[in-house]
């Protein structure tokens, strides 16, 4: 087990490093004047020259990258001409358009993203697994067909469509809820939850569908296995077979998918945040892309990648723990 753990985490580290190379190469070796792009369209030639100097664009590529990497692990210094600006590790660079450190920018956006992600996650796991369980329990009846249909509809609806419809119905037509506007948890917990209700629900409705399908299919698969036949032949009731044996079989895949999803959520639920006006990491990315704020884009892509890789590793490890045969085979 320890061996597996170490190997998996080592693999994750390698992937992260490789990811940083790919991302760095993709963005800083882009066509056109990188310094000009990073600085923004309104920069004077002098400012552009300064940015070029700070990004070490004059040096060979590997030196540029080395400095970039150094920033992440040890922090780096930027000379501003008049003085020196220190950027603490993990330094993901500076936004010249906003005159801010990227790490700082991301950190201030993270609470909103986390609020959205965690709330929606709890909701969709309950909804998804519950739906899957119910449709297996009621298999062969109308309930199963209805639930399967709803699940398919859920799979087919993009989150922004659900969100838009919910806003129209609840905020505009029925006027039951305020138009969403993010309020930090620390400021007013009640307002926080009230404003996040619609985003949570829309995200959960859409994200629950794959869980419902997976729960259902892996439970059905387990129910067809020999060991379920054994317990049926020993007088265990259908409730026991479904609730104890089949559900246990679905646990591993659900945990694995859950870890992956929550990981990529921390990279920002780009669409949901944009639609509901939540000042999180995802919306920051959209803004940065629209403004072509290169350092912020790079930083965000890396952070998202970090969360995804981490989640991948955690998912593997959790699944291995849930199903120890994986490690053995």
């Amino acid at each position: 087990m320890t061996r597996f753990l170490l190997r998996r985490l080592g693999g994750a580290l390698f992937v992260l490093l490789a990811l940083s190379v790919v991302v760095y190469a993709a963005f800083y070796v882009a066509p056109g004047n990188v310094a000009q792009i990073a600085c923004g369209p309104r920069c004077s030639p002098a400012q552009v020259a300064q940015v070029s100097d700070q990004l070490r664009l004059g040096d060979p590529l590997y030196v540029q990258y080395a400095h970039f990497l150094q920033g992440i692990f040890a922090g780096r210094d930027y000379s501003t001409g008049t003085g020196i600006l220190h950027c603490q590790a993990p330094c993901l660079g500076r936004s010249y358009q906003d005159d801010q450190q990227v790490t700082q920018m991301i950190l201030t956006k993270l609470p909103a993203t986390a609020s959205l992600a965690i709330g929606a996650f709890v909701l969709w796991i309950l909804l998804g697994v519950g739906t899957g369980l119910l449709s297996v329990w009621r298999r062969g009846r109308a309930t199963e067909r209805i639930l399967t249909g709803l699940t398919l509809a859920g799979m087919a609806t993009p989150v922004f469509v659900v969100g838009l419809l919910l806003i129209i119905v609840f905020c505009s037509a029925l006027q039951l809820l305020p138009f969403p506007d993010y309020v930090p948890l620390t400021e007013n917990p009640e307002q926080w939850a009230w404003n996040l209700l619609l985003p949570w629900v829309s995200l959960a409705l859409v994200s629950a569908a794959p869980y419902a399908r997976m729960t259902r299919s892996s439970m059905l698969e387990t129910l067809a296995e020999d060991h379920v036949r054994t317990f049926r032949a020993y007088g265990v009731s259908e409730r026991g077979l479904v609730g104890r044996h089949a559900l246990r079989g679905a646990l591993g895949p659900v945990i694995a998918l859950g870890a992956l999803d929550i990981g990529s959520m921390f990279g920002g639920a780009v669409l949901t945040e944009s639609l509901f006006n939540i000042p999180g990491v995802g919306r920051e990315l959209v803004d940065a892309v629209k403004n072509v704020d290169l350092p912020v884009v790079v930083g965000l892509v890396l952070v998202t990648g970090f969360f995804v890789v981490l989640a991948n590793a955690v998912a593997d490890i959790l699944q291995a723990m849930a199903d120890r045969r994986v490690v053995l085979s």
């Binding site: 693999g11 390698f14 992937v15 992260l16 490789a18 990811l19 790919v22 991302v23 993709a26 963005f27 882009a30 066509p31 056109g32 792009i37 990529s264 990279g267 920002g268 780009v270 669409l271 990315l285 959209v286 940065a288 892309v289 072509v292 704020d293 290169l294 884009v297 790079v298 965000l300 892509v301 998202t304 990648g305 995804v308 890789v309 991948n312």
Partner: peptide, 24 residues
């Protein structure tokens, strides 16, 4: 397989957004 692992780690939306920022 390692390359594939790296690509798995690239969230499509995020990468697409990023790439759209730098392409003319």
């Amino acid at each position: 397989s390692r390359v594939t692992d790296i690509v798995v780690a690239l969230p499509v939306m995020v990468i697409a957004l990023g790439a759209l920022a730098v392409v003319p």
